[in-house]
Amino acid sequence: MSEKSWKEVPIGGLIVEPGNSKNYKTGSWRSFKPVWYEDRCIQCLACWNSCPEPSIFVVEGKVTGIDYDFCKGCGICAEVCPEKAHAIEMEPEF
């Protein structure tokens, strides 16, 4: 976001673009990344439900992948993924 003059920003420190934090990517914070294996996924949505960002893509009630723009690599999703499925694994970022 380019820096604006005092004449150009809304008064009162108001932010009038709801949810514009989506323009601030936090994915670079990651040192480990979750990798999702679709074939093993049982679509329980536990990962989405436990993700603090959230950075689990859900389309029409189904997990479709991981939003690496925002995922900070905490590993909760892999941790809550049911053992029998084991559909998310943490791997080093580099």
């Binding site: 820096e3 604006k4 003059s5 005092w6 920003v9 008064i11 009162g12 420190g13």
Partner: peptide
Amino acid sequence: QDYYFEHKRQ
């Protein structure tokens, strides 16, 4: 730091 000053100027 990047906008507080601008809001005070307003």
